[in-house]
Design a protein around this nucleic acid. Sequence first.
DNA 1: AGCACGCCGACT
DNA 2: GTCGGCGTGCTC
Length: 804
Amino acid sequence: MHVAKVIVDVPAGQIDHSFDYLIPQEWEDIIVPGIRVIVPFGPRKIQGIVVDTYMKTEETEFKLKAIDEPMDVTPVLTPELLQLANQLSEETLCFHIAALQVMLPAAMKAKYKKKVVLKSEPIPPEFLPLFQKGNIVSWEKAMELNLVPTLQRKARAKEIDFEIIYEVKEKNRKKVIKHVCLNIDRKMVDNEIDKLPPQAGKQKELLEILKNQQESIPIPELTKDYGISTATIRSLADKGIVKHLDVEVYRNPFEHKEFKRTEPLPLTAEQQKAIIPILKSVEEQSYESFLLYGVTGSGKTEVYLQTIQEVLKKGQEAIVLVPEISLTPQMVDRFKGRFGDQVAVLHSGLSIGEKYDEWRKIHRKEVKVVVGARSAIFAPFENLGVIIIDEEHESSYKQEENPKYHARDVAKLRGAYHQCPVILGSATPSLESFARAQKGVYTLLELSRRMNDRDLPSVEIVDMREELRSGNRSMFSTKLVELLQNRMEKKEQSVLFLNKRGYSSFVMCRDCGYVMNCPNCDLSMTYHRASSEMKCHYCDYRALVPTTCPECTSTYIRYFGTGTQKVEEEIARLFPEARVIRMDVDTTGRKGAHEKLLSAFERGEADILLGTQMIAKGLDFPNITLVGVLSADTMLHLPDFRASEKTFQLLTQVSGRAGRHEKPGEVVIQTYTPEHYSIELSGSQDYLAFYQKEMITRKQFQYPPFYYLTLINISHEEVMKAASIAENITSYLEKNLSSSSIILGPVASPIARINNRYRYQCLVKYKREPELTKHLKKIVHQFQEDKRNNGVYVSVDVQPYVLM
DNA sequence: AGCACGCCGACT
DNA sequence: GTCGGCGTGCTC
């Protein structure tokens, strides 16, 4: 008898191991590792994933329950991915099921339904409202009508008999289109047409169409193109001449889009030089990491494209990761244009069903290339030839929920498994990556010149303190106003960039300084114009906008810094004739709105594009000759050791938007701290100088890439409890880690309370700590599951990006 | 996590 | 004497 090791869909510490189940004989060929199954678990039925199988002797056989049924015909996870899930759960300290689940499209997550089945007759009168439509009803309905206790009582008294059943459902079904096809022999069709009465013209017409068609015809096509109604089809179906048929289709998010085929462009000398070692690695099938450091507009994408071309020639597959925010239609166009139908696209803009379809194309080997955001790194390819991570420095490659993985680390594991190159591309590499390239861990490849030798835009840094001193209190410097005016006259386009953070809109009393805070969290609440209410971003608490100050009853209370909206108003005041497109959460919320706004701007329907982070990337329009950064330093002062790096990267990215084509570009960066090196050096676009300067700071303050980090978060409803557990954890680490490691804390988190839970943290900095994972596991188990610590929550983030 | 089981106080 | 509150322990 075969036995399957199954990881079940229960995210809990005590359940985080495999459970053994017998494989029923009839499924023995189907149930192999990587198959999803439905298994009995206690009284219920749940989804699980088979991770291993083995043969077992009789003695233990009777103790095991059997698998109910498989949910797949072929494995949804390869042996490689199953093993990768193990590594992930080990390294990021997440549950096995979480690591497995992150590799599958959301549509495959099970949904559970609990139902009540009445097994005895007749139905007692008090249950009639419940069992109106038969003897099976949902548990929710039984609860709603408050009949569950009565059911239990009656069953105990043996007056009735009922059962609770548990169902496992797939969240998403395959999309089908109803088709019609002949139900009789093709040769008999003429015969049938003759038999039909003369007035059945439409029916005859339909049969004629079907006669000349080898395959079935979709009903929508029949009604639209041939004007044949469903009634016509039905009457023929009733006669048994035609039949209905469900044909599975892919949802196609690019249905109405034509992709212009592109041919490989001739490479510049620099590109040529960069691609040679990559192609060598592709050819030799050796695992090697490359850092492709190329200034904005230097043609990194063409290097990717031609590398992929070679990979495809060898019959291998490619994964391309792109940050969510720059997965724009332009980006998709470039890959679809070169590789056509061989490309699947995975990004958050797709519906669950669309993602599922794209995933199935990969799974069925119908595509060879995946372009996608973070989670596309888990694409179930089995013959990978290259992994490319574009904009490698982007923090969106780190997932902030469990499993807290970094796509770059996963890429390296997969690259090593498949023995293929991993290419990390960026104009502003992360310090970690550049340092590794310096050390020779990565092979450094450089593209130092823009395509067509276009100059980098000239950047001017404007000191806003000076502006203030000379009496300009607006958010636009004289210089920026002047240049905007100039572009309007020349009919050229401008992009205005607002660093969103620090600009969130909050309500403050002008008299006493009262700021409206969330009652559950230690944070100020944000004002939402759309719903005209105050919201907390962390716990979903909502409140009305106050009209008078709750502290001092002043009516001089108003909202501050609405970011883009406020800037838009100001532009309207300065340039009444300007046409502005605003891009922020409010205007791009709906699906496709993002693309619509961008293409409107591309068509020249506006003079100024105003937006947040989301416009920093990918934007590549010839008519943009001016970029303005309204406030460069808003994120410089966040409690984050990467603040300087992020500022430099963002400013460099934004500057790169200007003058990418024939017309030269200009950039204006407004700041209150022009002397800060991350701002100063972004002005001269000097990455190397920034790298050197920032490395000194990192070394001095013992941060990556000189030290690794691990952050432990502790939260509890009571401050004292959180603090004391944090204290215990810290002293445990101090006792057990090497003396070269630095343990900071415990301290209250920068956001000291979320959802009425007090938060403490402890930060470990280390160079070498081989036993760290072991200790962290112990901590999570001991402090999380100790009954005396009831209600404590301990979470670990290995190599964190967010320290709040 | 969910669910059952079981032991206590508050009712008919 | 029964109902249902939640604390405890288990799920192959």
